[in-house]
């Protein structure tokens, strides 16, 4: 079971709600993914209760809502959005996204740390989105982050895991769950993250802009479970030489005890 803050989850697949071709399709995809943690941008939520459709109405009930601070470019803005999100949704969970760079959408490490520290003190369960920086991950853990969410590659690129070496260090050192977030373009990327020992992954673009989001959600759901099972089972060592899978003689040195 995945444990974040004081809650436990069966699913290790978190899903984002951006970019979908319709809110209906988004809702169905979320169900198909069996995800129990769904992130949504506060800036997409219409707090005015206007006549237009509200994205929150399309998120399956019973899941842990994870509002995010997308749009914030510094710690102050992230803190402001977090408080609005708590007031609007009733949850104290918040995914911190502080992104001053509109080109590659890379998160700001300094202000992410500042916002996390302030919001933890204010009683939030904070899940910060970060570059794959092991020292930053430890610093966030120290100030009370509930997880760390390092990226696999720049968000929305579907390029897979390009930060492999740093992710391995983060996973090795972490005392909080590590969620690989951003850049996972295909189920095999998600499976790889899970095999590495990540506690969970977050996927959005790869499902939302797929030709068939429902099937893709299913694919990711299976891949995340497969990767986790393999990690728990213990991955076999890799070898440069061939070894027979059905050894002819399983006791190479058996003759020594024949006498």
């Amino acid at each position: 079971m995945l444990k974040i803050g004081n809650k436990t989850f069966k699913s290790r697949l978190m899903v984002g709600t951006g970019k979908f071709s319709s809110l209906e399709l988004m809702g169905k995809t979320l169900i198909e993914s069996k995800s129990e943690i769904i992130t949504v941008s506060l800036r997409r939520i219409d707090l005015s209760q206007g006549d237009r459709r509200n994205i929150l109405d399309f998120i399956p009930s019973g899941v842990q809502l994870l509002p995010n601070t997308s749009g914030a470019r510094n710690a102050d803005e992230a803190i402001k959005l977090a408080k609005l999100a708590r007031a609007a949704t009733g949850t104290n969970w918040i995914k911190i996204e502080v992104v001053p760079d509109p080109h590659y959408l890379l998160p700001d490490p300094i202000d992410t740390l500042r916002a996390t520290e302030a919001l933890v003190k204010d009683g939030f369960t904070v899940l910060p989105y970060i570059n794959a920086d092991p020292v930053l991950a430890k610093r966030l853990e120290d100030v009370g982050a509930a997880t760390v969410m390092p990226l696999g590659s720049p968000i929305g690129t579907n390029r897979g895991i390009k930060t492999l070496e740093m992710l391995k260090i983060i996973i090795e050192q972490a005392r909080v769950p590590v969620v690989v977030d951003a850049g996972l373009g295909r189920p095999s990327d998600a499976a790889m993250a899970m095999e590495l020992g990540a506690d969970a992954v977050l996927v959005n673009t790869a499902m939302a802009v797929s030709n068939n989001p429902l099937e893709m959600a299913k694919g990711f759901e299976l891949a995340v479970r497969a990767g986790r099972i393999a990690y728990v089972a213990g991955l076999p060592k890799t070898n440069t030489q061939a070894t027979p899978s059905s050894p002819i003689d399983s006791h190479l040195t058996g003759f020594l005890s024949n006498n």
Partner: peptide, 16 residues
């Protein structure tokens, strides 16, 4: 909507 595109009226937060 007919061609599979979702119109978005709000994608920013005035508080920012």
């Amino acid at each position: 909507e007919k061609v599979g595109l979702e119109p978005v009226f709000k994608d920013w937060q005035i508080d920012l």
